[in-house]
Amino acid sequence: MTTAVDGRLDQETLVGLFERMLLIRRFEERASEYRLAGHIPGFLHPCIGQEAAAVGTCAALGPDDVILSTHRGHGHMLARGADPGRMYAELYARVEGYNRSKGGSLHMIDTDLGFLGANGIVGGGIPIAGGAALQQKRRGQGGVAVSFFGDGAANQGAFHEVLNLCSLWKLPAIFVCENNLYGEFTAQSEQSPVADVADRAAAYAMPGVIADGNDVLDVREKVAQAVARARAGEGPTLVECKTYRHRGHYEGDMCAYRPEGELEQWLERDPLVTFPARLVSEFGVPEEEIEAVRAQVEQRLDEAAEFAAAGTFADPAETFEHVYVDSIEGKALR
């Protein structure tokens, strides 16, 4: 079961995975600064530390596949190829943002990328992913639906209802649990007697697989196997990515609940440290190429932030748009 379904990756692809992870890391580090500088009015839930799970998963998907994400969704969206400029514009509450400043961080959506939404409700995207998988099956073109969620969401009723339903109907769904050890401000061990969320797959007669969530290649391989199984009509898989959230539940959370030394241990396994080192030592990527990627990412994010800052605020009249597709001559708006 450990053989990669499509063999070894070429150097360009490997460097691409690094570039995407770095883009996410730096996008969020900068977003944190921009928020403190007063440019971002709402919540931010950074996924710093978890980039390998997002990028590894999305690297195993095709263009017709769709994704449902979480409150920690910037990484999933960037991993899928989103434009950081339009994402910053959304965070800056400008109409140039992906959702015309109506959604913000917690509700970003890009249908062109098959990114059907971050979600402000823990576990809220899981049932929608079930429906997306249902429609993928009805289309019959081999598309799958990926549902990202955290260890906290695995204790929601929705998780159990949907895994049961999707397995029963053999829907092409991939349930990717990013187990970052914390649900909001409380350790996973204090919220569930089950240490491995993957164990719960057995209750729904589907494979439960554990991936090293800080190893982009391991995640990619495990998810690729799940995707192959889904495309073959064999039904869903639960993939648990063991990872760690470097920052708090949201920006501003000081993480007083963390045991001493825990963060430091995980920092040694930081995918943004370990993967570039592997690229050089194991895959023969020149150091200069790594440095060039770093410079490109900074430049891209400079431009993205400039794009957002130059954006326009929505006209107040737009408050009343998009409540309904058809408000029936405005009657539904009163």
Binding site: I126, P127, I128, G131, L134, Q135, Q136, A158, V162
Partner: peptide, 15 residues
């Protein structure tokens, strides 16, 4: 599973 049912309808409707 009412939540899963409505979610299934919602996800399918979005597509």
């Amino acid at each position: 599973s009412e939540e899963a049912i409505v979610g299934a309808a919602l996800g399918a409707s979005m597509m």
